[in-house]
Nucleic acid binder design. Sequence first.
DNA 1: CCGGGCTTGTGACTCTATTCACAAGCGACC
DNA 2: GGTCGCTTGTGAATAGAGTCACAAGCCCGG
Lengths: 256, 256
Amino acid sequence: MRKRPIPEATVARLPVYLRSLLALAEERRTLTVSSEELAGMAGVNAAKVRKDLSYLGSYGTRGVGYDVEYLLYQITRELGLTQDLHAAIVGVGNLGRALASFKGFAERGFRIAALFDVDETVIGTEVAGLTVRDLDELKEFAAEEPLAIGIIATPADGAQEVAERLIDAGVKSILTFASSVVKVPPDIVVRKVDLSIELQILSFYQQRREAISSAREANRVLEGELPGAAGLRTGAAEHAASFDERRAGTLHSDRR
Amino acid sequence: MRKRPIPEATVARLPVYLRSLLALAEERRTLTVSSEELAGMAGVNAAKVRKDLSYLGSYGTRGVGYDVEYLLYQITRELGLTQDLHAAIVGVGNLGRALASFKGFAERGFRIAALFDVDETVIGTEVAGLTVRDLDELKEFAAEEPLAIGIIATPADGAQEVAERLIDAGVKSILTFASSVVKVPPDIVVRKVDLSIELQILSFYQQRREAISSAREANRVLEGELPGAAGLRTGAAEHAASFDERRAGTLHSDRR
DNA sequence: CCGGGCTTGTGACTCTATTCACAAGCGACC
DNA sequence: GGTCGCTTGTGAATAGAGTCACAAGCCCGG
Ligand SMILES: NC(=O)c1ccc[n+]([C@@H]2O[C@H](COP(=O)([O-])OP(=O)(O)OC[C@H]3O[C@@H](n4cnc5c(N)ncnc54)[C@H](O)[C@@H]3O)[C@@H](O)[C@H]2O)c1
Ligand SMILES: NC(=O)c1ccc[n+]([C@@H]2O[C@H](COP(=O)([O-])OP(=O)(O)OC[C@H]3O[C@@H](n4cnc5c(N)ncnc54)[C@H](O)[C@@H]3O)[C@@H](O)[C@H]2O)c1
């Protein structure tokens, strides 16, 4: 179990633990934290926390828990957050602007170093303290100030070309918001955030739920339990259960 | 294999197929599409496409492929996209504004029906043709115009409370952008989109790559292959390989 | 320095997802 | 009407993730 390969699913949860630990460190109440407690904060179960952390090494103390500061450091290191990474946003529209103005990235060690667009009317304007540059200057810019991460916030059409330009400029990690599929060589990591897909997934489960509850209702009516269609409203969020959020990134480059 | 349970992973890919099929339908070149071709467009492999589609039923024709229109219809239906779903955005800041102004949702069958905030200076202003309402009016509003989906775009602090309010107003599907963990009863589906986590995941693989390549470089230097540190730049995106993007949602309600 | 309580770390198991590989079935052409 | 090429649909094999449950190990109090 020791050494190398940290499962993708674990990598995707490390940032969640990190955030929980930061909260603990801030309130300075506890110097250590148990897997149970961390699990509660992160919304996962304790066994998972322990297994995840065990991939990093044996950093806990039996009978006690994990030293908050030390674990914080280890996760930070493992995620490569010890140094600020520079990112460029390409496509300064609605979304690009919101991203550029977002303060939270800096806190987490990401520095938005430049904004690029192709629209003449956008180039040269100032957004969140940065001047929007012409996409043509990307390579040149990156040569001077290496960019670790490229963020694509253009419409779907442009995305593939932008990705290629980013790669050509030396960027190896890409986050895209465009709804198109972006294809890249196997040594490049792309993550895609697609809000429409998220909504569609919600729609699927919503519909499923409706199907089930209307079936149940029909049943009850048949069985004479209900007079007609009455409220099926469920109790509010008092006894809110913990809810697992997974976001598994993928590296299988799945070529063909 | 037939009937009911469509795996989560499959659900998450259906929207991708849907989009590919829409593109095909639009260009009206082909009436049918093979799993191979669809796989190419969606950036996954053909076996996966076939298995995914087989969960919906046997909609293909051996030796021929899938009828584009028919498949389109089936996926649309399965995802529950035959009717427009109404969504509300809570938190009209940088991100909320960008979301509200985004045209793409409407195209995909989602209607942003209302915007809510708590900030006096924001309430009453107009954003993307909608007047921002006071969050206190949420329940009332939802009673009149049922909301299928709630989108949380507030800072992390507010998110849990907003979620509870949404649930109280009858919303069963939630998409949150806040970096906090949102806990909900098991009958509510939450999906979380966390951009900072995405960047941190990229950071992890970036760092990993650097570790590997510098190790390799060190090796080469030892073996006398390289004079010093020279360009390790990889070829551009000519022979771009297909790249699998997974986003598995989770429904295990993982309570404790 | 011993025992009890507590919490980690991890093998073993289970469940889910992916991939392989091939028989079955369709259409077209002779 | 037979055969050939192509493509689906799916069992079986494999890989990956999650969960269980417990021995090992630490701390503290006596
Ligand atoms: N706005 C949202 O809330 C939202 C939600 C979901 C998805 N998205 C996705 O994010 C992307 C951007 O959305 P948006 O609303 O900001 O769009 P937008 O139209 O407001 O902005 C796009 C920007 O990209 C620029 N651009 C176009 N082609 C370019 C190219 N080849 N290189 C560089 N820049 C280019 C345009 O000039 C424009 O400034 C889209 O792919 C969209 O599907 C956005
Ligand atoms: N802007 C981005 O690009 C971006 C990127 C990543 C993550 N996020 C996340 O998205 C969320 C919103 O980000 P933002 O940049 O739009 O923030 P913001 O500060 O610009 O806007 C937040 C809005 O929410 C409102 N709000 C605060 N508490 C509220 C409550 N309890 N109920 C209703 N409304 C409330 C505020 O009045 C404000 O209008 C944050 O959680 C942030 O972490 C944003």
